[in-house]
Design a protein around this nucleic acid. Sequence first.
RNA 1: CGGGGUGUGGCGCAGCCUGGUUAGCGUGCUACCUUGGGGUGGUAGAGGCCGCGGGUUCAAAUCCCGCCACUCCGACCA
Length: 587
Amino acid sequence: MKFSNMLIPTLKEAPKDAVLPSHIYLVRGGFIYQVASGIYDFLPLGKRVLDKVRAIVKEELDTAGCQEVQLGLVTPAELWKKSGRYEKYGAELLRFEDRKGNEFVLGPTHEEMMVEMVKQFVGSYKQLPMNLYQINLKFRDEARPRFGLMRGREFIMKDGYSFHADQEDMVREFELMEATYRKIFTRMGLDFRVVEADSGAIGGEGSKEFMVLADSGEDTIVVCEGCDYGANIEAAVRKAPEAPAEAPEAELNRFRTPGIKSIEELSKFFSVDPYYLVKAVAKKALYDGGKSEIVIFYLRGSDELQEVKAANAVGANELEDASEEELRAAGLTPGFMGPIELIRNAGVIEGAPTFREEAAHPNVRQVFDENLKNADHMICGANEEDYHLVGCDLSVLKDVTFKDIAQTQEGDACARCGGRLHYTKGIEVGHIFQLGTRYSEPLEATFLDANGKRKPFEMGTYGIGVSRLLAAIIEQHHDEKGCVWPAPVAPFEAVVVIGNVKDQQQKEAGEKIYDALKEAGVDVLLDDRSERFGFKMKDFELIGFPCAVVVGKKLADGVVEVIERSTLEREDVAIERAVDAVKAKLA
RNA sequence: CGGGGUGUGGCGCAGCCUGGUUAGCGUGCUACCUUGGGGUGGUAGAGGCCGCGGGUUCAAAUCCCGCCACUCCGACCA
């Protein structure tokens, strides 16, 4: 392929709103072009990279026994209604009607479609297991697309679905997919971490994310310095923090704390470590069918609420901040909320001075962080303006829910090895789920087992953000000059740059080397443009081919230069050795 | 969804506050010349309904109203 014939619109200037290196270089290098918010066209170079990424994904999946199919992007709304996601998926699901008024959606993911297909043709345990996937466009009407290919509305995703006769087999496949994904991302030259993820209300037992480590990542992940534990912050667990030595000893009592509302103020007021304060976070939990309720989550003052964990703890779809009015309507006193009625019910506060009956709030759901189990010497809100309770012993509480709802903090100890945990940022490029029968049941996708019994499929689902991978790769592989593509995903493995195309000898030598490289199986591009030397070198660096062969001035001595993009080191080699030198660089 | 910003030749921007020449600059594009190891220099060109609609005015890129698009921060993101 000749550069002069290709559509490679490299740009000198960065698009005005691009912030991330991947966004800037993919646009400047002529890989992609924005059509609308979150929607990109792939230009020839971008398409080539995309195809290479796809090919790697396909090769590894096929090796693992998966089968590629292709489902329609437009899917009947009916299926989505059946699975209950038509309403639930929300505004991200792009809905529309055809000319007859039939409802459709643009598929944001294809569980329903795939289940429907399998249901149609798979009826016996003898056909199981089966793992089907596609690499196809998806559409999610994101509220806020950004960062180029990182978070688009239209994007390419590999989505796979496996079907099994029992859970053990599904788990086996899950592990096979984890191993396969590791191979895929390793081949692309990515530095990634496999982390525990929130499987939330959707997933079954297990869910893991594949995170490419990059500061620009949108996810915070918690990793252990001592072992290979890693988790998305939404799912990260820790060893219970140690108690600070000076516990505030006190008799259970009601204490006037005028205007002291925040944990910080309270800590100062009593000169007590926040560890011994009870933080009450009230949220409005939203459920299916538009139902909602106020829930109070209690944590140690030294902890923060992890909202995903909290939502899971009450089975809510979502948590919203509750307004002050809503709290008061529920009988709560913002700034002074506490588990007071529980203490009263436990019979401890009897006889305490001027207990106000109306401060109790028996109708609000409450969840305690597991770190408050048996907590003693605590200070908490009295649910009464300007009052707190001191000397609270939470171990007397009966029938209350304890859950892990606290956010793991940097510096906490690893639950597995006790090592120090720290935060890092990651780009989610893969996610694997153990789904169980969550879709097969409502969609009535069943098979006959060995005993002739009808059972729903046990399912797993596995995704890879294919177009996002392009961005992730560049986030990890770039320098101040541009992209530095790892050879397996580079648009071309090498470029032959003719220093001056008007120099007949350079031109002929360049073409010869180009032919020889092609002959040798190298994916090579010939930069035969009538541009100046510097211009072509800048393009080489910006686009980021792994390797360049410069046919220029030294040709007179029978020498060409071979430049490695990653190091920008150049090496003079005799013309005859050019092919070998390139192959050595690519190896 | 909440709050801000911006829309001017392909790209990046100035002009707007304070209404009034032919809407300007850089880059890119075309032709010719020049140069040929790090975005060479020159000459001559083409390319704009100043986002859309309405209003104010003798006169609107500029002021006012509405809409749309893009974008940034946040919320959200199985």
